[in-house]
Structure formats: C-alpha cells, structure tokens
C-alpha cells in the first residue's frame, strides 16, 4: 500500500496529541490541583503534533524537495487533508499558546481552552475521515474509522498523560479517580468499534475480506491480536477493573496498563494502514 509506517506514526501522534490536550483540559477542569499533570498534557500535545507533521513532510518527497509547496495544502477545501490542515493550524496555534502560558505559569483562559478542545476532537476525528475518503480501499472506506480513531486518540492521549502524571505527580494523580472509568468505557467502545470495522470490511468484496484476513489470520495477526487487542485493550482493561475494585491502586500495574494502551494505540494505526488492500476490479 502506498501509505506506510510513516503515515501510521503520524496518525498515532496526531491522535495522541489531541488526546493529551483533552485529558489536560479535563484535569484542569475537574482536578485543579493536578497542576503538573495538566502542564504535562498541554506541553506534550504540540510536541507530539510537531513530530507528526515532520513525519508527513518526510513522507511527501516532492514537498520535501520544495518545502514552499506545503503552503499549497490549504488550496482544496473538498479534500479532507486540506480540512485537516485547517484544523491542525488552528489547534497548533492554540496548543502552543496554551503550552507557553502553562510554562510561564499564567492562567489559561477558559474560552481558549474550549477552542483547543474542539480542535483536538476535530484533529482526532479528521484522521479517520482522511483514510475514509478512499474509494478503492474497502477497509478504510468505512464510517466506523472516524469514531474508532477518536476513541483511540483519547485513550492514547490519556495514557500518555497518566503515565507522566503517575510518574511525577503521583499524589495529585491519585486523586484523579475519573480517568479510570473513562478509560474503561472508551476501551470497551474501542473493542466494539474494531469488531464493527472488521464486520463491515469483510462484507465489502474480495479486498475487504483480504484486509480482514490479513488482520485476523494473516501477516498482521500477531500485531493485531497481541498488540492491539491484547496489550492495547484487554490487559489495560483488566488492570483497571482490578484497580477499580481494590482500594489501594498498584502504581506499577498502572504504568503497565498505560504503556499497553499507548503501544496498542500505535499498533492499531499501523495495522489499519498496512491492511489497506486496494479494491480488486477484475
């Protein structure tokens, strides 16, 4: 397939950036005490997105050779990539301002934060529509992809922020009880969406079936079953459920779960991109 690992990395870090930002604003709203976690989330977001943009540019050889051409990305509003460029421009500006304010210890105006949140959700969702607008790839030309990528973005973002929070701001992090149930809901939702994706794709002719076969039994099966499902969903879900019931949450279990979500998040993007099989016309 024409889009390879570089694009998978971009999709992941763009999603994670959105997720981190949203988590940070959730923390700022619900747990004003969690200063460090909030700062971390809001500083990581633009960094992650910058990494993603770098990936995009490296993958676009003709643009790499003539960087000015990237300005042309705004030209075609009917293209999801152009819409994505608008979203990224807005979100990047907001995220940078917020990050700077956080670094300077200033207070982030609520209105700005809301704009950032909307931008983040659009950023996470647009990546699904980006792959979706591909008539020739049944696996991607699928309405389940946007919600799946939004959910995955949230879980990945939350996981990254939680990892940092738990590591450096454990006391405050402990108080953030709401994160765990949110993650559980999102994880379950993600499982359902993945199932829906596979079911829809398998009904979409030979290429769809081939994509599903690649994921479930073929060359991508290990990455899918062990990576995406096992480490990315089942393990973190189990640890969360275990921690929900027991009073004293185990820090290490927590880190393991969050790392699993991050790894699973990336592998989800990777396998979906790699399993994009072109429609067989004849």
């Amino acid at each position: 397939m024409v889009w390879g690992p570089m694009i998978a990395v971009y999709l992941f870090v763009a999603g994670a950036a959105a997720g981190s930002y949203l988590t940070a604003s959730l923390v700022s709203f619900k747990y004003p005490g969690g200063v460090f976690t909030r700062k971390a989330g809001r500083i990581i977001a633009p960094i992650l997105l910058a990494i993603g943009l770098l990936m995009l540019m490296l993958d676009a050889e003709a643009g790499l050779r003539n960087p000015l051409r990237f300005l042309g990305l705004f030209a075609n509003p009917r293209s999801v990539m152009t819409i994505g460029t608008y979203i990224i421009s807005v979100f990047m500006v907001v995220a940078l301002i917020v990050a700077v304010l956080e670094l300077m210890g200033k207070n982030v105006p609520r209105a700005l934060d809301i704009v950032g949140d909307i931008g983040a959700i659009c950023l996470a969702g647009y990546t699904g529509f980006l792959l979706g607008d591909s008539l020739g790839v049944p696996l991607w030309h699928n309405s389940v992809l946007p919600p799946l990528f939004i959910v995955s973005a949230l879980t990945s973002g939350m996981a990254i922020v939680s990892l940092i929070g738990a590591a450096f701001d454990y006391v405050e992090f402990e108080k953030m009880g709401v994160l765990r149930p949110i993650h559980i809901v999102l994880a379950v939702l993600e499982i359902l969406l993945i199932v829906a994706l596979l079911v829809i794709a398998s009904g979409r002719g030979a290429a769809g079936a081939e994509s599903v076969a690649m994921l479930t039994t073929g060359s991508l099966a290990p990455a899918f079953w062990i990576g995406v499902v096992g480490i990315g969903l089942v393990l973190p879900l189990a640890i969360d459920l275990f921690n929900m019931r027991s009073t004293k949450s185990e820090a290490s279990g927590e880190a393991l779960a969050q790392t699993g979500v991050v790894v699973g998040g990336f592998l989800l993007r990777f396998v979906v991109v790699s399993a994009g099989v072109m429609m067989v016309l004849l």
Partner: peptide, 13 residues
C-alpha cells in the same frame, strides 16, 4: 504544486 503526499494514489480505485 504536487507535494507527493500520495493521497490521490489512495483514493484512485
């Protein structure tokens, strides 16, 4: 104008 993003290759069936 082409930046080589290859989106057209994804979209063309």
């Amino acid at each position: 104008k082409c930046i080589g993003c290859k989106y057209c290759m994804v979209a063309c069936p």
